[in-house]
Structures are given as C-alpha cells and as structure tokens.
C-alpha cells in the first residue's frame, strides 16, 4: 500500500526525467561527435600544415634559436570552420593549436639533439685528428 503511494508520487518526476533525457541524450551524443570530429579534423590539418621535416631541420640547424625566434610559418585554416557549429569551432581551434605545438616542439627538439650530437662528434673527430697530428 505504502509502496503504491510512493510509486504514484515518483511516477511523474521519473517520467519527466526520462522524457527530458530522451531529448537531451541525442544532443549530447551529437555534441560529443562534433567535438571528436573537430579534433580529428584539426589534427589532420595540423599534420598537413606543419612540416615535421622542416621543424626537425630548424631544430638541427638553429637549435634553441627556433624557440627564441618563435617561427610560425603556417596560416591558420579559418576556412575549415565555415558551416560548422560553435562546438566544432571551439574544439577545432584548441586541438589545432595543441597539435601544431606538439609537432613543432617534438621535431625541433629532436633536430636540436641530433644537431648537437653531430657537432659533438665533429669536435671529437677534430680533436682526435689534432692529437694524432701532435704525435708526429
């Protein structure tokens, strides 16, 4: 008896909640899809725009100067935002920035280390050659 009263009292809010969820859930799914798609698109674009090889070369030849100069050759792909919803724009810009930064810093650092290693090796060869010369 008591359970039946409780059920009647709860039925309306539960039904309302379920009705709202039926509307909200697809919207949330769409939002999540927009964000995921935007991020995937932005990362793909960043990989196209930022050349890993160029940044490796910059790092290799300019070393730490790359960061000091703050080279940023790419023009952001604003046109990719045409016809896209606000959630897409927000996610796209965040992911594009993160990905371009990631590609640049990783490759410039690798280039910097490789460049430094080659320099050390060259100096070692020069010093060794000079030592050999002194022996004669």
């Amino acid at each position: 008896m008591r359970n039946s009263w409780l059920f009647k009292r709860m039925a309306a809010p539960i039904t309302l909640f379920m009705a709202v969820m039926l509307v909200v859930m697809p919207m949330q799914t769409t939002f999540a899809q927009d964000t995921a798609t935007a991020c995937a698109d932005a990362e793909r674009q960043a990989e196209s725009d930022v050349s890993a090889g160029t940044w490796f070369a910059f790092g290799c030849f300019l070393g730490i100067l790359v960061y000091l100069i703050g080279l940023q050759p790419e023009n952001p792909p604003a046109a990719n935002l045409l016809g896209k919803p606000p959630e897409y724009v927000a996610a796209y810009t965040d992911c594009y920035r993160a990905k371009t930064k990631d590609i640049k810093s990783k490759n410039a650092l690798t280039g910097c280390l490789v460049g430094a290693g080659v320099q050390v090796l060259l100096y070692a060869i020069i010093i060794a050659a000079a030592d050999d010369g002194d022996e004669f």
């Binding site: 698109d41 793909r44 674009q45 990989e47 792909p77 046109a79 990719n80």
Partner: peptide, 15 residues
C-alpha cells in the same frame, strides 16, 4: 620551408 608551405598550405578544405 617555402615549398613545404606552398604544397602544405590550406585554402578551403579540411585536411
């Protein structure tokens, strides 16, 4: 870098 930008640049499209 210029040539890479040239071929890697974007005008209107995704990726």
């Amino acid at each position: 870098a210029g040539v890479l930008l040239l071929i890697g640049g974007n005008v209107f499209s995704q990726g």
